[in-house]
Nucleic acid binder design. Structure first.
Lengths: 221, 221
DNA sequence: ATGTTTCTCCCTATAAATAGGGAGTCGTAA
DNA sequence: TTACGACTCCCTATTTATAGGGAGAAACAT
């Protein structure tokens, strides 16, 4: 009856891939069109002529390139791909960042399998889909944003990190000191310390340990 | 032909559970006997009269009680349950800790689904099973342990942390400084710094960030 | 063209962390 | 009883990190 929906899967856990394939195969309207185990594979697959999918189901944690980078790549290259994030992270910052990068859905790995099918159909039909736990988080974040009347907060995200800040943050998690980071990135020590200060402020943490914890929780490392 | 192997699954990601069920259902020799979404459910299930399984497939990251705690509970109560750890962690310290807690197998979520079936059969037959990437890690750790002839290293784990050191480590991950930790634990600052020094030495990390990363990876926080 | 962000670097100062060392108490296990 | 580990605290010294501030150059968008 309805046209088939083509799906591409991306997750570094092959067991999960196989499981989702098994779940999707129970639905006649949806068909798998390949899968990828790393972010780089995703980009390679979509770059190859003839390869396409109505919906990409994308994990965040992946080697080589993570989910963030994949979406950034799509945006940078003008690729309008419908993407559902499938993640175990329910951090509001991550969900918001993914939304700002243009994903059409976000479902938690805690969800039941049928929700994947629902999500695929909704997103393929041009709607958005969020699993119930993600919906709660989003609602809570909106509720918490009780802005004083008159203010005009037009940014959806909390402050985003710049590329350079991410470079520094990654090296911090590798236990490098500021002088060492400066050396590695060929920067002045002052510059690295400036990035550190901005990271502390943006992420609202107290010290380098807080930065590391943030990086781990948000899978930047 | 052969007797059926009964399996219980434990993972907080329902999608993964459903996927593994689908994979296992392709094998006639293996049958699922229930699943759990938290560590507490696992313990409750095995405590209930009549419930048993030849093999428990156990995730590490779970709410309420994690995989470590489940194994500790089994050991404390004299329950000899064959357990296969199914985890996305490939940290040698975690693998070793799980082994020391008596698990019979350890497979990475990166593995292919057929390896789960192999693992279940091997472990049910009294053998051990490790997926190839875990095998590599174990071999490397053994190779690194080139102990001078004559030495008698009878501990399997790397140096263990004392209670006090764990107290300090936890507070470090909460972004407290040494003076703040000293205040919270009613200790002298010197004492806290001594614990810090010993932590850095024992865990072979460079700085507080390394301590935090260790704590996260090993589920201390 | 003008504003905004990013990236770069500098200054001053204080607080904290790291790196060595030593040393005393207390309990427990050999 | 003695030895060992855990826990406590102190000393000296150097290196990093944190906390303010400012400021110029380049890229980008409105």
């Amino acid at each position: 009856m309805s046209k088939k929906i083509y799906v591409h899967l991306a997750d570094d856990h092959q067991i999960l891939i196989e499981g989702i394939i098994a779940i999707i195969n129970t639905d006649e309207d949806i068909e798998i069109r390949g899968y990828s185990l790393t972010g780089k594979e995703v980009i390679d697959w979509f770059s190859k002529k003839g390869n396409s999918a109505d919906v990409l189901i994308l994990d965040i944690t992946m080697p080589l390139l993570d989910g963030f980078e994949v979406l950034k790549y799509f945006n940078k290259n003008g690729i309008r791909q419908k993407v559902i994030i499938l993640s175990s992270y329910d951090d509001i910052k991550i969900v918001q960042e993914m939304l700002s990068l243009g994903c059409s859905g976000y479902i938690s790995k805690k969800s039941a399998g049928e929700h994947i099918l629902e999500a695929i159909k909704a997103v393929a039909g041009g709607e958005q889909y969020f699993s119930s736990d993600i919906q709660k988080i989003l609602l809570k974040s909106f509720a918490g944003q009780q802005v004083p009347a008159g203010a005009a907060p037009n940014k959806f995200l909390t402050e985003t990190l710049t590329d350079r800040e991410l470079d520094v943050l990654k090296l911090i998690t590798e236990q490098l000191s500021s002088p060492e980071i400066a050396d590695k990135l060929s920067l002045g020590i002052s510059t690295v310390e400036t990035h550190r200060k901005n990271l502390l402020r943006k992420l609202k943490v107290k010290n380098s340990v807080g930065l590391a914890m943030y990086a781990v929780k948000n899978n930047i490392v």
